[in-house]
Design a protein around this nucleic acid. Structure first.
Lengths: 201, 201
DNA sequence: ACCTGAACACCGTTCAAGT
DNA sequence: ACCTGAACACCGTTCAAGT
């Protein structure tokens, strides 16, 4: 019956705030994110987030960082796929990317909004770069195996990135209902590879 | 010296609000759009916008509608280009699209955010459909001339739309600094046309 | 170190009232 | 028809104070 011995509060308020914020984000959108509302939901005072996130923007940045870390993990795993050939790994990575975006559309939008904003925080920059390091790495291996044109792998990856980004944008709006994404993603990869002068299939 | 005979105020407050809102949007972002601030700037009471825009979201929707109308006008003009061949017109339309997005990045983002939101207002839907009617029309003419595969022109246009959308996203972030957009857009058009099985150049 | 409670300056929205 | 002024319920942020 002793009051559940948290001295003032549960100690991991930071994590709880992030969790609650993500839920609220996907449920009601960034516009309606409210620190006071989150505080109410967690049963703490409205000033308590301040220690963990100096400003509302800091909470949002933290969500973006978390998102990029998850994206990196999910794409990285897909990209590893030992024993698979070049194109199969690229396709898996692309599927993982698109899958993440469709599963967390609001978080994904927030991440790219953060990406767009100038004056990025270092942690954000790091998380972002990690997430976008996998595809260039695969492309580089493709180059070394002579399966693809030479050139900066990062630039090449941008071409694929642009195509996938557009695909995601369209399908989030439900425009690609007819043909399933599972079918469209490999086509897009093949498509871009053709554009990159693949000289072997 | 008579007080400048506007009975209460200038009569076209609606237009002024839209104009001021667009400026504030590009200068400070959607997040920081404030009806009260706009009212102050125009020298009216903070309650006066209500007659013209029942809610802040209505102002934002009106901005989106205005944006799609302008986009439609600019792409439509590029797409007409009498006497030009199929691919040239497509390229011009693509350039106009990308040019608009880069010239008004915040408005463009707002437009696509509005596009994403469910329960679109009819005027928004109309403006949006008009803006996206030009490319399918060109593609259809390409089909009739036998220069491109059969299929729903709207679906085909989505492929081009996705590619351009991705391109815009990347270049707004300044990622395509190396190669100029002017060079990349025609390549993308050619690229997609190849994907659409162009059988004649 | 972490949280509270009161305070401050801002919002969007509503509404009776003025012209 | 269009605008005002006061009021209401909400914000984010700050800060002294509590544990």
């Amino acid at each position: 019956m002793k009051p559940p011995s948290r001295p003032y509060h549960h100690g991991n308020l930071r994590q709880e705030l992030l969790r609650a914020a993500e839920a609220a984000l996907e449920a009601r959108g960034v516009q309606d994110l409210s620190l006071r509302e989150l505080s109410r939901e967690l049963g703490v005072s409205h000033a308590s987030p301040q220690r963990h996130f100096a400003t509302k923007q800091d909470l949002i940045d933290a969500l973006a960082i978390m998102g990029f870390e998850r994206l990196s993990s999910v794409v990285g795993k897909a990209a590893e796929a030992r024993g698979q050939d070049f194109k199969a790994r690229l396709t898996k990575a692309a599927n993982a990317y698109v899958g993440f975006a469709l599963k967390h559309p609001a978080l994904f939008a927030l991440m790219f909004e953060a990406k767009r904003r100038p004056g990025m925080r270092p942690e954000l920059r790091t998380a972002l770069m990690a997430a976008f390091s996998h595809v260039p790495k695969i492309l580089q291996e493709g180059q070394e195996a002579g399966k693809i044109v030479a050139g900066d792998p990062h630039s090449l990856a941008l071409t694929l990135g642009a195509a996938l980004h557009g695909l995601v944008a369209m399908s989030i709006e439900g425009k690609i209902r007819g043909t399933s994404l599972k079918a469209v993603v490999p086509k897009t990869v093949q498509h871009v590879l053709t554009g990159l002068n693949t000289n072997k299939t």
